[in-house]
Amino acid sequence: MREIQLEVLRYSPETDSEPRFETFQVPCQEDWVVLDAINHVKDHMDSSLTYRWSCHMAVCGSCGMMVNGEPVLSCKAFIRDYPDKIRVEPLANFPIEKDLVVVMDDFMEKLKASKPYIIPKEEKSIDDGEYLQTPLQLEAFKQYSMCINCMLCYAACPQYALAPEFVGPAALALTYRYNKDSRDGGKAERAHMFSKSEGVWECSFVGACSEVCPKHVDPAAAIQLGKVESAVDYFKSFLMPWSR
């Protein structure tokens, strides 16, 4: 058993004019994650503490927060990897709804705008079975389909911090994922995501998004590859107008 000082950002829009910190002394088991410590506070110290969580196995994407300044999934941030003083805050770059809960509207709108669904290259009836897709073709997009929408990459992205209209890492990676799917023919319909000024060109290639991604999606790679393809498409439009 190890006792930590858990310093939690508190903010209730109905009673607080600005956020404040509250510290709890939490006895922790050796193998606990930060989320376990937060749950301990909720259950035994202050039932009003507000945060999102569900799966406790790093796949639902609910419990992203800043722990000692870094965006992490709190269900996979082990106490043993931190000093005795642990500070938790809501994900950076998003408005705070209450305590550790942030407003997700902007992300959800960007997700929708990226048209993250198959726009079939060729229509096929269910009766005709599955589309053939070789392991190599699957490999071309699989990595970018692993995004759990936890938004850690937005919290880490210096460009999103400066220019919130930036489409951002996860939505761009997802756009790229569908563009690279052998079953898809919707790249032109998604072109606005990449080529507009708030698209790939806004990224300054710091790569923070890929560093914090808990699922190794590597959105930075998707954005850079998207830039190259977007540029090629742009020049192709001058060279070979008949190919569009």
């Binding site: 599955e130 070789t134 392991p135």
Partner: peptide, 22 residues
């Protein structure tokens, strides 16, 4: 099988055989 094939058409990244079948 119809439902799972429908999901395939919607883009579910099912693991594949070398021939590209599910």
């Amino acid at each position: 099988p119809r439902q799972l094939t429908q999901l395939e058409h919607w883009g579910c990244p099912w693991s594949r055989t070398p021939e590209g079948r599910v």
